[in-house]
Nucleic acid binder design. Structure first.
Lengths: 108, 108
DNA sequence: TTTATATTTGTCACAAATTGACAAGTCATA
DNA sequence: TATGACTTGTCAATTTGTGACAAATATAAA
């Protein structure tokens, strides 16, 4: 999805013809803060991902993908890094998984 | 580099035959905390990346790549997401850059 | 073993960042 | 101009991260 996560929520909300207040209530959130989330001023809290999936009947895994890719994109945009970082990250994830297989739970 | 950032620092430090106390001093850091960083218990603070590059004569851009890829890998490992997320992130970075060209500075 | 040095671990007050909440503002339209 | 929808500003409260230091544990040489 070529959108920020906030824009994505706004799209979903508009498609469902909900007002900020209505959706905010479903997500147990202040409507003013939801407005900021949609506009990229505040972050959506990942502890509400499940609720969000419920409200719009979305697959939670896909929603997580949408959410965390957004998180990463913002971070890398902010620190002005990209391609190489993503490739390396992929390798490091493998490394962490393998390490975890060997050692059990990691410290972080 | 197939290592965590902490492990990478430890390698650099050992190669230079510095003690935790010595390196910590150069980085203006408590040696106990540096120990935790090397062991992945605490995070290295990105505001010290430049200092770290100086101490070991490293290219700052490469160091940033090392650092942020680690950051991403840990995050995705923690939330148990990967491949798809990285691909999407790449697209989103492009989207953010293009959006910024059009609109000027973003809000985050 | 004792001593010295290096490293690790635990803790905690403080600082920084994030969030929830609410007031007050703008905007659009009937 | 009244109403509902949305945006913006602010701030106390919470959460999270950091610096600092004490204490425990290794490691190795005398």
């Amino acid at each position: 999805m070529k959108k920020t996560f906030g824009e994505y929520i706004r799209t979903l909300r508009n498609e469902s013809e909900l007002t900020l207040t209505q959706l905010a209530a479903k997500l147990d959130l202040d409507s003013a803060n939801l407005s900021k989330i949609e506009n990229g001023i505040r972050e959506f809290d990942d502890k509400r991902l499940e609720k969000l999936a419920d409200v719009f009947n979305l697959d939670l895994e896909k929603l997580k993908t949408e959410f965390y890719s957004d998180f990463i994109a913002k971070k890398l945009y902010e620190v002005d890094c990209d391609n190489q970082v993503l490739l390396l990250a992929e390798e490091k994830i493998k490394y962490l998984k393998q390490k975890n297989l060997i050692q059990g739970k990691l410290k972080f």
